[in-house]
Amino acid sequence: MLNKYKLLVVAGVSSIISLGFAQMPASADPLSGLTNMLNTINRAVGSVDSTVQQLDGTVKNVSGTVDNLTRTLGLQSRGSGGSVSEADTTKQILDIYQEWYKQLNPPEQEIISWLVMEFARGREVTFDTISSTEWFQQKPLQEQQLIGSLVFKLNEITKASANEKDRFLTYAFCVNSGSSNCNP
């Protein structure tokens, strides 16, 4: 991916140089045109370098998101070798959700299924909103702790998949229904 940007930099710098020489007026100070052209090239290279650094940071952030989510859910770490695209990241997040959900026991799966349904309805699924419900308050403390943990873990998944909420919900409903043919 970075090789494409390097090629763009080379092509852009070549274009600027040829344009600069083609339009350089004759003057008493022939170096002033060259200095201006070099300053323009320097700014263009700096801008492209900044873009490449931002893209590199985005890829590292995406990898970090997947790694953090995996750790939060208590799953095996996933090494992300090579470049990571946003589509690949969403697929990884969906795969992580499925792996996590299948490791839950049936009562935990039922809670997660209910929370996903609430999230799909557009209701705010936070610990504050859940803990203020009569349903939650009637649970023993140990079960409240479990529900709280599940709420926070699901919120991490929904934050990680926020750009593709509908895709996450479609996949989560499929996984939660027990289907083995869910396509991330």
Rank of each mutant, 00 (worst) to 15 (best):
S27T: 15
R43V: 07
E164C: 04
T51N: 07
T170H: 11
M24H: 09
S83N: 09
A11L: 13
S85T: 14
R78L: 14
A87Q: 10
P30H: 07
A120W: 03
Q76W: 06
I17N: 00
M117P: 00
S47V: 00
G79C: 06
S47G: 01
T89E: 12
K153C: 10
C182Y: 02
N176W: 02
G46I: 00
P184F: 09
D95F: 03
L141E: 13
T51H: 05
S179Q: 05
S113C: 11
A160H: 04
T90F: 10
T40F: 08
K159T: 08
N61A: 15
L69H: 08
T133M: 14
L94A: 01
L31E: 05
D67T: 13
T90G: 02
V84E: 03
L73F: 10
S50P: 00
A26N: 06
I93S: 02
L146I: 15
T126G: 04
R71H: 09
L141D: 07
A160D: 03
P30R: 09
Q54F: 00
W135K: 15
L141H: 10
R121G: 11
V175A: 05
W114F: 14
N68C: 02
S149A: 14
P107V: 02
K102T: 03
Q53H: 04
V10A: 11
C174K: 02
T133D: 12
P140N: 14
E118G: 05
S161T: 04
E134G: 05
K6N: 08
P184Y: 08
S77Y: 12
I41P: 05
Y5V: 00
A28N: 06
G82P: 09
G46T: 05
F21D: 00
I111N: 06
N68A: 12
Q138A: 11
V84T: 07
E108M: 06
V62G: 03
Y5E: 06
F168M: 07
S149E: 15
F127N: 14
L115A: 10
I16E: 09
R78T: 14
D88A: 10
S77M: 13
D166R: 00
N181S: 05
Q145D: 14
G178L: 00
V175F: 04
S132R: 15
G148V: 11
Q23A: 14
D128M: 09
Q53S: 12
Q54L: 01
A162N: 12
T40Y: 06
